[in-house]
């Protein structure tokens, strides 16, 4: 297990509860979303969540990317953690969709992650990140 964080605050210690568990009762501040669960159910509670962990059972299952975008577009500012089959070749996509923590089942080399994140100098689309898309650079 490797945890790489792109946040300055301390890592959240409390383990995430299931979505059902969270919606059922709790005043939990961390929740874990399994692939296929509808993250929009969390939207009313974003201000009290500090960690949302999104499962990637296999790197090929891309549903978590949309979940991340939906949360960030709704204003969620807490930690958004990609957990599971998180590989070096997807870290750019993950970061651009708003994940700011990567929890990989296999060893993930931090230097390689930095290198991968630095590889592309520009991006065409506006996404969940501060960098301006190419069309904005072209036209101001």
């Amino acid at each position: 297990m490797t945890l790489i964080r792109f946040r300055s605050d301390a890592a959240h210690e409390e383990p995430g509860v299931t979505l059902d568990g969270f919606l059922g009762q709790s005043n939990a501040t961390a929740v874990r979303i399994e692939s296929g669960e509808d993250v929009r159910l969390l939207l009313p509670y974003l201000d009290r969540l500090q960690l949302i962990e999104i499962a990637f059972p296999t790197f090929r299952d891309g549903r978590g990317y949309s979940s991340a975008r939906i949360l960030r577009e709704a204003g969620y500012t807490g930690e958004l953690r990609a957990q599971g089959d998180v590989l070096i070749d997807q870290v750019v996509f993950l970061r651009r969709c708003g994940f700011d923590a990567l929890s990989s089942e296999k060893p993930l080399d931090e230097a390689a992650v930095e290198q991968a994140l630095a590889r592309f100098p520009y991006f065409y689309q506006k996404a969940a990140e501060p960098r301006a898309p190419v069309w904005k650079l072209r036209h101001g």
């Binding site: 891309g62 990317y65 949309s66 750019v92 996509f93 993950l94 969709c97 991006f123 996404a127």
Partner: peptide, 8 residues
């Protein structure tokens, strides 16, 4: 091209 949400 390299759409972050729609590449997988």
């Amino acid at each position: 091209t390299f759409h972050p949400e729609f590449s997988l």
